[in-house]
């Protein structure tokens, strides 16, 4: 069990992640934008952040930079519609990179791997 923060501008996608990840026994918090996530992180420290790349305003890459600036040990999984974001070296600083899909199996597998590598049981 872990505390997860899902950052995505798409409301229905946030709902999907919340429903699925809660059912898997995680404690899920939601943020609709980069600044919202930063604000959340000021008061909380989640075990893992699932971060959308393509967001209006502050995009996921920028948000990633700010998050890591606050806590460089924070595990982050980048979640995006574009496989091309893998080419941006900033994304290398994320722990994993998952392309959005209706099948959440890959995402859930990555969450488990990241938590395990950080000494957390999935």
């Amino acid at each position: 069990m872990a505390r997860l923060l899902v950052v995505d501008d798409d409301k229905n996608l946030r709902l999907l992640y919340e429903q699925e990840l809660v059912e898997d026994g995680h404690e899920v918090s939601l943020a609709g934008s980069g600044p919202e996530a930063i604000e959340y992180l000021n008061k909380n420290r989640p075990d893992l952040i699932i971060l959308d790349v393509s967001m209006p305003g502050m995009d996921g890459i920028e948000a990633l930079g700010k998050i890591l600036a606050k806590d460089k040990t924070m595990p982050v999984i980048l979640n995006t519609a574009y496989s091309t974001y893998k080419d941006n070296f900033m994304t290398w600083s994320a722990d994993a990179y998952v392309v959005k899909s209706g099948d959440l199996a890959e995402l859930k597998q990555k969450i488990k791997e990241v938590l395990k590598s950080r000494g957390k049981d999935a």
Partner: peptide
Amino acid sequence: AHVAHEIRNPLATIGGFARS
């Protein structure tokens, strides 16, 4: 790319909830 971005989210959402 534009289409992918715009379509991927709803498709993922639809697929995700359908599987759920």
